[in-house]
Amino acid sequence: MITTIIYTIVCLVVLGLLFSVVLYLVAQMFKVEEDPRVDIVESLLPGANCGGCGLAGCHAFAEDVVKASSIGSFYCPVGGDAVMEKIATALGQEAVKTEPRVAVIKCHGTFDNRAKTNCFDGYASCKVMASLYSGDTGCKYGCLGKGDCVSVCKFDAIHLDEKRGIVEVDEEKCVACGACVKVCPKSIIELRPKGPKNRRVYVSCSNKDKGAIARKACSVSCIGCGKCAKVCAFEAITIENNLAYIDASKCKLCRKCIDECPTNAIWAVNFPLKVAVTPNKVEVQNPVVKNEN
């Protein structure tokens, strides 16, 4: 009996030693020489592997940053300036300041605002839907509401409101990695500067149809009337293809355009509420995004 146990122990120990030697040799043989700074940079990165920087992941980012002569052309949207500064210090370089940004959805075609004209009966994906036809409402440009951006977001920062049929960005969580911008087949998501105190003004519509058609499809569409552009004192608003666009770098957040817009397509968020305005349902449900109107 005892001999069996001894044999077993001896055998296992010998086998273990043998395998460890083999493993060591193989590891030596296939060792890849790598710049040690790559590891340092990678350890500073958030490690989300989101691809927001445009590279395959955090390791690829670290490799490229170390290889490059200057880090000026690199930016980790997740870590933001804080991380970039750390990386710059680690590599002995100067960091470049970038304005923090956030994803905004340029559509507010909820079920209330935008009537359904048909019912999509295929695989619930915006990509599949957009490849087949223009969408299940009269608007050819707006949110399809199947949530491709929701599933692609690694930070749980974008959610589909199934009752209202539209996606919303949680700006606390959004790191502006841009994954949703890339995946949206209707290109209605834009990364905009967060703005002072997170206050910003933007056109929440992507409809390029003529006014009458756009208005018929959706009650909060931009009809390209140009009133906002006329009232803007800073030339921040341009109208192209029947659609207004506010240049965030020129906008002084005066909010005159909002009062002027006949369809409530322009949004101002995170401003203190005006007393006269009764908050509508939207504001109560989602305190983060506030419609001034």
């Binding site: 295929g122 695989y123 994906s125 990509k127 599949v128 490849s131």
Partner: peptide
């Protein structure tokens, strides 16, 4: 399973 819906998009 909506096989072709998905395959069609990937194929493209």
């Amino acid at each position: 399973i909506p096989l072709l819906d998905i395959i069609r998009v990937s194929k493209a």
